[in-house]
Simulated assay, not measured.
Amino acid sequence: MKTPVLRTRRLLLEPYAPSDEEDFVALFQDARVGRWMGDGVDEEAEDRALFGRLFTKVYAQDLFGVWVVRHDGRAVGHAEIKPSPTPGVDGHEIVYAVTPTAWGQGLGTEIAETLVAHGFATLGLSEVHATVDAANEASLALLNRIGFRHVRDLTEDDGSTTRLLTRPCVPGPGH
């Protein structure tokens, strides 16, 4: 299944185009964002290589959904839903990031809710996971507000703590 275009009241989530490389790199190179992604801010060349792999691997092999997030026509974030790489976690996890210039507008919540809804309605998942650095209070609060619950803490190789959170699918009336 090719990565679909997703729309919310304010946002457009669409597959990246080659012309989005500078916005992608700028987002991941921003220390306020990159510190929470993966193992932290990488070298710029690594982020450019990662962007290239979106086309040569992720989209080419239809591995999972990855989107650029646009608000009023400009790139304001990144979103993914993918098989969880976390050991001992069976299922899919969401990943999202919002550029600091767009913080405080509820866009992160809108992205996360859209990813969860896509996971349940389109991918047929029974639950969705997220892994968040224990120090990332804003993301932990956001996920808690939209129904994620703490499952357990994971100790990283560097001694830091990552929280594993899960949100089950709650069927609506008639399901």
Rank of each mutant, 00 (worst) to 15 (best):
I146G: 11
F24R: 10
T3N: 11
D47Q: 14
L6A: 06
W67A: 10
Y96N: 10
G159P: 12
H92I: 01
A75V: 09
V58N: 01
P4Y: 04
E46D: 05
E113F: 05
A102F: 15
P87C: 01
E14S: 15
W36K: 02
S84W: 10
P85S: 01
F148S: 12
A112D: 00
A102W: 11
D39S: 10
D20Y: 08
P18W: 03
T114P: 11
V41T: 14
F28Q: 13
V98E: 08
L140Q: 08
G34R: 11
E110G: 04
P4V: 07
E21R: 13
L115I: 03
V128S: 05
A121L: 14
A31T: 15
F55T: 11
R7Y: 04
D39K: 08
R9C: 04
N144R: 14
A31G: 11
F51Q: 09
E43N: 02
P83E: 04
E22G: 07
P85N: 01
K2S: 08
P87Q: 10
P87L: 06
R32C: 09
H71I: 01
E21L: 06
E43G: 01
A31K: 07
V69Q: 09
E14Q: 14
G159E: 13
D158F: 10
G77E: 12
P173G: 05
A45I: 15
R53G: 08
L140M: 10
D62M: 00
P18N: 02
A130W: 04
R167V: 01
A138P: 07
E137V: 13
R152T: 15
G77D: 12
E127L: 06
T161P: 02
Q29D: 11
R163F: 00
H175D: 15
D90E: 14
L27T: 07
T99I: 11
H175I: 03
L11F: 12
T131Q: 11
G108H: 08
F64H: 14
L50R: 12
T3P: 08
V89L: 02
R152I: 13
F51T: 02
R35S: 02
L54F: 12
G104I: 12
T56E: 02
V98S: 05
G174Q: 01
D42R: 15
T131H: 05
T56Y: 00
D90M: 03
A121G: 10
R9W: 02
L13K: 03
K2T: 07
G147F: 07
H175L: 13
T114K: 07
T109C: 13
A60P: 03
A31E: 15
T122P: 04
A102I: 08
V41D: 10
I146W: 06
R10G: 11
P83D: 03
P4H: 00
Y16L: 13
F120R: 09
F28C: 04
P85C: 05
F148C: 12
R149V: 12
V76A: 06
D30Y: 11
G159K: 06
V66Y: 06
D133C: 04
T101F: 05
I81Q: 02
R74T: 12
D20G: 04
